[in-house]
Design a protein around this nucleic acid. Sequence first.
DNA 1: TAGATGTATATTGTATACAATCCAGGACCA
DNA 2: TGGTCCTGGATTGTATACAATATACATCTA
Lengths: 216, 216
Amino acid sequence: MDSGLPVKRTIADQVAELVRQRILTGQLKGGQPIRQEHLAAELGVSRIPLREALKQLAAEGFVAITSHKGAVVAELSIKEVEELFDIRLRLETWLLQLAIPAMTERDLAALDRNLEEQRHPDILPRWGDVNWRFHEIMYLPADRPITLKLLKNIHDKIDRYLRLEVTMRSGFDRALREHDSLIAFCRSRDIPAAVSLLERHIRETARGLIASLKMQ
Amino acid sequence: MDSGLPVKRTIADQVAELVRQRILTGQLKGGQPIRQEHLAAELGVSRIPLREALKQLAAEGFVAITSHKGAVVAELSIKEVEELFDIRLRLETWLLQLAIPAMTERDLAALDRNLEEQRHPDILPRWGDVNWRFHEIMYLPADRPITLKLLKNIHDKIDRYLRLEVTMRSGFDRALREHDSLIAFCRSRDIPAAVSLLERHIRETARGLIASLKMQ
DNA sequence: TAGATGTATATTGTATACAATCCAGGACCA
DNA sequence: TGGTCCTGGATTGTATACAATATACATCTA
């Protein structure tokens, strides 16, 4: 099994990863223009690999490139966030349904371990990653790699906004409780209960995030 | 309303479009390696814009790039084709459900016009485009642009294989009949009938394509 | 002969240099 | 004043040149 990451990584790939991280963590904010010469100099590379990285990020939807004007960090409108959650709803409930019958004890144990990590005192900075991992572990037994990759991309886009602490604090405990119940339903192979809880889980997360977006 | 295409197109964009077309039409076949110098010379450009185009196509899933080894035209396994159809099923039935109540007479007329085009004697070479346009027109009133773009990407990937004439001939008449009925159900706002027909339509297309893939 | 190791050549990856384009701000005019 | 047309600097887009890497083949060794 291949991790998907090339052993010998090219500068362009490293730069793409780094810029993506900066966008996800908010170091690069939505709407902010990216000056190629400046950023390339800061990273100690030429503009060529940076430009290739930007082309890739543009295709992934993290930046928007306009000819001869340059790249800006992509912004998500509330409408777009709602649509992304809608897509999640359709695809994740489907994957969960497929996954539950295929789950092994190993998978359930991995979910337990992940839940422990979520309860770690200073989880907040890593919450985005750990939360996605939880969902990923649940869906892996469904054996739908393309869908999973697609969902990861969506999660990444949404996570930029979930980092707004307002949302974090209010939805955090609820998320933990729901994750806990989800594992229980998976363990008892109760597909309807699990799917319906997941549906509520996603809708609630969406509601919280969108409310906080509308507030500011 | 913006077409999405930049007025002043850069060489890299034109090359990306051209290479994508060559892949979709089978001029570049799955698994075939892409030699940068050779292709760049053939197109009369340098390798820089070609490389940027390849990075974009890689992110879209049309080519696979391995460091220091180059790009090869992506291949789809039967398992992957099945998964793509599964995603279509989930997302397209959802979009249709949303779209039907929002459809106007204009939309229905556009569907009629498209159907006429499908009946054109030598539609075969343009079938991929026209077929997608049919589905796109149906889903546009749902007003879910991100989902629609995602589905277009999936359609493009599948179309490469739908061009195998075997499938074409056998599934062609059926597709026409089903498209016709779909319009009728949309016109009478019969959501359950339309959705269930669309579901069968997608499943049948998948079945035909996969059967012909397994044959060869 | 089979396998390992070195070397030449092809190919990709990156830096530098230059061309094309955009944009802010000033000159000019009605 | 307000609008239009320049113009120069900033920025992006592309070509060329060079560096890094991979692959095929020859050579060597046991």
